[in-house]
Each structure stands twice: as C-alpha cells, then as structure tokens.
C-alpha cells in the first residue's frame, strides 16, 4: 500500500536541521518542566493554592486549539504530497488562524493575571507559570512565522508532490510546539 506517511530512506520528515533545533528545544522545555516539578516538591501548599487561581478552561481550550491546529498542518502536508498546493495553502491558513486563537486566549489570560497584580515576583509558582507559558507563547509566534513563510512559498507554487521538504520542516516544528503544550497543560493547570 502506498501510504503518504512513508518517507524516503525512512529519514525524519523535513530538513534534518530543524530536528536538531527541535531536540534542543525539547531539552530546554524538559529541564524547565522538571525544575517546576521539583520546586513544587519543596512548596506544595504554595503551588496548590496558586494553581487554583489559574483559568483551567482557558488552558484546556488552548490545548484543543493547538491539537486542532496540528491536525490542520497534517492535512496541509497530505495535500502537498498529492501536489495540491491550493488545498495545502488553505490548511496552513487554518492552522495559522488557530495559532492566532491560541495567542488571543493566552493574552486574555496574561491580562487577567497582570490586572490581579500577579507578576514574576509574586511567588515561585507564578514565576514558573508566567515564564514557562510566555516562553511557549514565543514559540507559538515563531511557529506561526515559519508556517506563514511555508504558506507564501506554497501559494507561489514553490512546492510539489515530489519536492515539499519545506512544508514538512514547518510542520515538524509546529507539532513540537503542540507536543510541549500537551505536557505543560496537565503539569501547570491540572495535577496537584
């Protein structure tokens, strides 16, 4: 069976350089997550009380938004593998729009916290919450910029069924942004 998921030589999808970047990013986020978890072990009461002030609905909504956005990128890759640039552009546009929804929800969440007088210096929990989520926020923006660059090239016919490494490269980065949030959400918003 000819599956579209099959890659030449069983190599990683997209440019290998992006995977070096992805592994480096995952390492940084991993260290960040463990720093949060082990800091919590020394401040359980503080972390549990502070976590109660988070908007869990916004966190869950953003998880759904990123998962859906990732799925749209999968559809964009599938489209270009059949040589359908127009459909690829439409799916990429939808994925970028979902990234925009993520940013808007997060900005409301940040605004809510800042208006309540919460800042990096409030306590250890909020130092982690604000820095971790802002760090991820910046990655979402970078991911959107990468997807936009891929979109413009796809729109001008820069990719084909035979050559679409750029689409797979952008897709791989975007899935990494989703992957990190899948760990961040339960860690910071749910478990206590």
């Amino acid at each position: 069976m000819d599956t579209l998921a099959q890659h030449d030589n069983d190599s990683l999808p997209g440019d290998f350089a992006i995977w070096i970047f992805i592994f480096a990013e995952l390492l940084v986020f991993g260290v960040f997550f463990l720093a949060y978890a082990f800091s919590r072990a020394n401040n359980v009461e503080l972390f549990n009380e502070s976590q109660m002030q988070l908007d869990r609905i916004a966190g869950a909504a953003n998880t759904l938004v990123l998962i859906t956005s990732s799925y749209f990128v999968v559809r964009a890759v599938a489209a270009i593998r059949t040589g359908n640039s127009t459909r690829c552009v439409h799916w990429l546009l939808a994925a970028i729009a979902m990234g925009g929804v993520f940013l808007v929800i997060k900005l409301f969440e940040f605004g809510d916290k800042f208006s309540a007088g919460i800042s990096l210096s409030t306590n250890t929990f909020f130092m982690f919450y604000l820095s971790l989520t802002f760090f991820h926020f910046m990655h979402v923006i970078l991911g959107m910029v990468i997807l936009a660059a891929v979109l413009f090239k796809a729109r001008s016919g820069g990719y084909s069924a035979q050559e679409h490494t750029g689409v797979e490269t952008g897709a791989s980065y975007w899935h990494m942004v989703d992957l990190v949030w899948l760990i961040l959400f339960p860690l910071v918003y749910v478990i206590h």
Binding site: M1, L4, A60, L64, Y71, R75, P186
Partner: peptide, 26 residues
C-alpha cells in the same frame, strides 16, 4: 490521501477526548 488522513482524524478526535478527560480530572 485517505489511508494517511483517516487514522490522523481518529487520533485528532482521541486527543480531543483525552484532553476533556484531563480537564475533568482537574
């Protein structure tokens, strides 16, 4: 594209459902 897309659509729905479960636990 169906052999590739269909499992991904199932996975997407599964991820949505499991996110709902995680939220409800919280």
């Amino acid at each position: 594209t169906t052999p590739f897309i269909r499992p991904c659509t199932v996975i997407w729905l599964l991820l949505i459902a499991l996110t709902g479960v995680t939220y409800l636990v919280g």
